[in-house]
Design a binder for these strands. Structure first.
Lengths: 177, 177
DNA sequence: GCGCTTGGTTCGATCACTGAACTCACGGGG
DNA sequence: CCCCGTGAGTTCAGTGATCGAACCAAGCGC
C-alpha cells in the first residue's frame, strides 16, 4: 500500500498498522501463516500471488517482526516463515474482518469456521469461546474446519487439499519433504 | 485493492472482505466515518487523500452498502455519508487492528483511546468493557479521547481540531453550515 | 550429466494512485 | 447583474505498484 508516502500526517495507530499490513495480499499471506502455511511454494500455489509480490511481502513482514524466517534444512538450504508473537497478536483483527466478510460479503455463507479446540465450541463474533468462561482464545487453541468436510473446492493445491479436513491453527500444513 | 482480478479463487470470507475494504485509504475513510466525519471536504482535509480516490472509495462503499449517502440540504444540494448497520459492524475489526497498531507500530504510544461512554472505563483489547458485564460495546456507546486533551498535533483542519477533545463516536463532528 | 524441485529475480505491460488544475451549481455582496 | 467564495466533485498527465511469464541457481536423485 505504501505508495511513495505512507499516510503521512495521520497520527493514528490504525494508519501505522495499515502501512504494514494494509498492502494488497499482505493480510492473506498472514492468514495463510495462521493456517500453517510456511513455505514459499505453498504460498504461491494457495494464494495465486505473483512471486515478486510474495518475495516483497515476506521480506517486509520479516523485517517488521511479524514473521520469522527459520532454516529447517541445511542441505539443501531451506527456510520457512512462521508467525512471531507480534504476528500472532493479529489474530483478533483477522478473525473480526473475516467474520464481517462472512456475514456481509459471502452470499453462500462461509466455507470454513473456527472452533475452540479445547471444547469443540464454535467461536463467537468477538473470537471468544462462549462455553469456556468467555475468555479470549489464543490462535494456538483454534481449529479451522471446512463447512463441508472432504469436499474440495475448485482448487487442487496441497494447501487447499489439506484444509478440506479440520486443522489446528499454526501447525504446519505440509510436511517438509 | 482490486487490481483487475480481485483475489479470484480465494474461497475465503477474509478475501471477500478485503476486496472491498482492503484498498488503500478505504479503512481510514471508514475510521473517519466512525469519528463522525461525513462530508467530502472534511475527509479530504483530515486524511489528505487525493480527491479522485475519495470519490472512488465513497462510491464503492456506498454501492456496497457500508455507507449511505443522505441529502441534508436541498439548496444548495449537499449530501453526507453515514455508516449503515453493515458499516457499523466493522467496528470490532477496526478496533482490533488499531489496537495492534498501537501496541506494535506506535513508538510514542497511541494518540487516542476509547472508553465506554456509559461508565468511563477504557475498552480492553477485544473491544469489551471490563466493568460492565464484559459484553461487547456498540460503537454508539464509545467515546474517543485524545491522550493529551487540548494539545493539537501538527494538523489544523476542523476535524483534527474537533478531535482534541472527547467525542462520542458516530455523532457528527462538524456542524452543517 | 540431466531433469526435478524449491526459492527466488528480472522485465515489459498494465493498472492504480497522486497532485494539481478544472468544472459546476449554488449563494451572497455590491 | 457581475464577481467571488464554497462544496463537491471530474479530468489528466506523471509516477509507482502489480501482474504474469520467463529466467536463474542451488541442490538432490538417478
Amino acid at each position: 500500500m505504501a505508495l511513495g508516502k505512507d499516510y503521512e500526517g495521520q497520527d493514528c495507530a490504525l494508519a501505522r498498522a495499515l502501512e504494514l499490513v494494509g498492502e494488497r495480499w499482505t493480510l492473506l499471506v498472514i492468514r495463510d501463516a495462521f493456517y500453517g502455511v510456511c513455505r514459499y511454494s505453498d504460498f504461491v500455489a494457495h494464494l495465486g500471488i505473483p512471486r515478486a509480490v510474495l518475495s516483497d511481502r515476506l521480506q517486509a513482514l520479516t523485517s517488521a517482526g511479524v514473521l520469522e524466517r527459520r532454516r529447517y534444512s541445511e542441505s539443501p538450504p531451506r527456510d520457512e516463515y512462521v508467525l512471531t508473537q507480534m504476528g500472532k497478536e493479529l489474530w483478533p483483527a483477522l478473525h473480526a474482518l473475516g467474520h464481517w466478510g462472512s456475514r456481509h460479503m459471502s452470499p453462500d455463507g462461509p466455507s470454513k469456521f473456527y472452533v475452540h479446540a479445547g471444547c469443540g465450541t464454535r467461536l463467537n463474533a468477538a473470537g471468544l469461546c462462549p462455553e469456556c468462561d468467555g475468555g479470549p482464545v489464543p490462535p494456538e487453541d483454534v481449529e479451522v474446519r471446512p463447512v463441508r468436510e472432504g469436499r474440495a473446492g475448485t482448487r487442487a493445491d496441497p494447501v487447499s487439499r489439506a484444509l478440506t479436513r479440520p486443522h489446528r491453527m499454526l501447525r504446519p500444513l505440509t510436511e517438509h519433504a
